[in-house]
Design a protein around this nucleic acid. Structure first.
Lengths: 217, 217
DNA sequence: ACGCTCTTGTGGACAGCGTACACATGGCGC
DNA sequence: GCGCCATGTGTACGCTGTCCACAAGAGCGT
């Protein structure tokens, strides 16, 4: 037995990493039940601490939820990065070709939707807290590679323009269009009318949607 | 003073229209604060009835929320119908031309997004309850004209195919693509990164998005 | 006309939640 | 070595959803 971490009891009066422990507990609850399942008291219970201790690290339940939500965006970024990693640029010197750029954008969409399907609770939680553009690059929302989902879409779109796969005139704010499209399908799949469709159907819809983006952007 | 309806007191033991009153109260709460603001006890209070009375009409809070959610979908349909009404078919005998079909689809999207912006609480509530395709035509989700939002997209898409604005091969399941796109933008506008953007910017993004759908479907 | 029954509303209770306030603990800087 | 202040505890309050036993009375069959 080490120094601290066992929920049942701890030796020191101070917890040592309570904020982290509460966040972790919150993420676990979100994973299983979405944003509504993130319960402050339960988080303190799991951390082996009294309910009020949480207030030393989070202003209120909403603040904890916000932190959990940011982490979820980070996980989403990780999933997208993983998909991107499977399509490295094929051009000379690592520069992307036009086909690479299209593959990148597609990978971002696939990763985004894969995350929604694999971790619906976290996905819902990620977008359960109102936010705005000014925080789109907040490091708290970044994945392990340090990039937020928003940045990843942007990178793919930049490659589209650089390789001529997309007219530069349409580049501005194109993040929103690509994002909205994929986000909407994600919501429809996990909570909306597409819920319960078998995987092949969902894969098909995903593919069709990404085709549409590719054609229409 | 008539027979019943005043919150403070009522003469008869029976309320007479409690289910409707609770639903109405729920809608009002959803309008102001989204799904989480739909509180069972508060609804009974507004209806001038004891908390438990609600259980004679709804199995639990979730059931009330579901009913409110369905009503919200109906309101959404109403808003879309209003937008559609502004673009009646111009062809001979009321048959739509290709341009009409495009205008119809655009009107559906515009109406959908207008609803999201005008009634964000109701919009969020509409999609806060998990659902699936088998209920897409449930009359409870229909607007005053008797058609659900899902049906309205379908109608516009049918017109697109009939007038040759869209290849028939792409018709199947195209509802999902159109819907997902517009739904995603709606979410981004009211809760996501696009929150707080001024109206002109949002209008612009909306227009660009609908262009994309038109080109890419 | 009468009484039974079934639906609808009431009253009281309970556990769980978020959160406020006063208090305890003890690690760290002087 | 001492005192401060960040961190954790205890108690309490009002609110929620929901369960149970009970009351009221509308509407039916006889």
């Amino acid at each position: 037995m080490s120094d601290e971490e066992q929920p049942p009891s701890r030796s020191t009066y101070r917890h040592g990493g309570l904020r982290e422990a509460l966040l972790e507990a919150g993420i676990e609850m979100a994973r299983e039940g979405g944003p509504d399942a993130v319960v402050l008291r339960e988080a303190t219970r799991r951390a082996g601490v009294s309910p009020n201790a949480a207030y030393r690290h989070f202003a209120d339940r909403e603040a904890l939820l916000k932190a959990v939500s940011d982490s979820c965006l980070g996980f989403s970024a990780d999933r997208i990065e993983r998909e991107l990693a499977e399509h490295p640029p094929t051009g000379p010197g690592g520069t992307p070709t036009e086909a690479d750029a299209r593959a990148m954008l597609r990978a971002v969409g696939l990763g985004y939707l894969a995350f929604a399907r694999e971790e619906p609770g976290l996905f819902r939680t990620a977008y359960s807290v109102p936010d705005d553009l000014s925080h789109a690059f907040d490091p708290a929302k970044a994945g392990r590679a340090g990039r937020t989902p928003f940045q990843l879409v942007g990178i793919a779109l930049d490659a589209m323009v650089e390789t001529g796969a997309m007219p530069a005139a349409r580049r501005q704010n194109a993040e929103f269009l690509a994002w909205a499209t994929v986000h909407g399908l994600g919501m429809l799949i996990i909570d909306g009318p597409l819920r319960g469709l078998d995987d092949r159907m969902v894969d098909f819809a995903t593919s069709r949607l990404l085709d549409m983006v590719d054609r229409g952007l």
